[in-house]
Simulated scan of single mutants.
Amino acid sequence: MPKINGNEIRPGAILDHDGGLWAAVKVNHVKPGKGGAFAQVELKNLRDGRKLNERFRSEDKVEEVRLDLKEQQFLYETDGRLVFMDSETFEQTELDADLLGDRRPFLQDGMTATIQYFGDEPLSVQIPQKVKCRVAETEPVMKGQTAANSFKPAILDNGVRIMIPPFVGPDEEIIVHTELMEYSERA
């Protein structure tokens, strides 16, 4: 694995540090008046989700890890485990449903997701940024409500509560941004 200097760490980089795999979430480069420059890095453990704040000087060497990305199709969920299938080899992979966190309801049958692997070990799941959902229930439109930039609460067919524009009614399909958990556009 290639080694990089502490000042070359960027957000999203995967590092082999303290015997674990860590993703750099936030990186702040600091140049104090006295002493050498350093990078203050917020790390998140890819295996158990722990967070760590670490300071790397520019002369520190860290191993950067390259993860393999594989597109796989979601099949079903059983006992809190998500089952995905590789479209080329038809091998099935089981992952913990907690890896998706709040985005779990947006995972739909047959959806293609990107799974990050370290060797043969699956570490994380990325679902598409935008997903089509149906509005299950919402409040009726009030006359004159469209004049201001206002939103109303809605419950989607997957049980997620979001805010939608007043012109969207029940049983309409909309596109939801899965990372921001908010309305994007009409389908």
Rank of each mutant, 00 (worst) to 15 (best):
T138Q: 01
D98W: 09
C133K: 07
M181V: 10
Y183T: 07
P128I: 06
M111T: 05
P128L: 02
D120M: 10
H177W: 06
F118Q: 14
A187D: 11
E172W: 08
D16G: 01
N45K: 08
S184G: 09
G12S: 08
E182V: 06
T178H: 03
D157G: 05
R47L: 13
A23R: 15
D102P: 09
V160M: 07
P140L: 10
L69Y: 00
E54M: 12
D60T: 03
F151E: 14
P140G: 08
S58G: 05
I175V: 15
V160T: 08
C133Y: 06
Q116R: 15
M1A: 15
K61T: 04
I164L: 13
D68G: 06
M163L: 14
Q40L: 15
S150L: 15
K26N: 11
I175G: 11
H177Q: 14
L95E: 10
I174A: 08
D102G: 01
L95F: 08
W22H: 01
G20E: 13
P140H: 07
R57S: 15
F84A: 03
N5E: 03
G101S: 12
A97D: 11
V65T: 04
D98I: 10
D18I: 15
G101R: 08
I9A: 08
F38Q: 07
A154G: 10
D98M: 13
S58Y: 04
F151D: 10
N7V: 04
D120C: 00
G12E: 10
R161Y: 12
G80W: 05
D98Q: 13
R161I: 14
N158W: 07
N5P: 00
K51F: 03
A39P: 07
V168G: 13
E172L: 10
A23M: 15
Q72E: 06
D68M: 11
F74R: 06
P32A: 13
F151S: 15
D60F: 03
V131C: 14
N45Y: 01
V62R: 06
A97M: 05
W22V: 01
G33A: 02
A39Y: 06
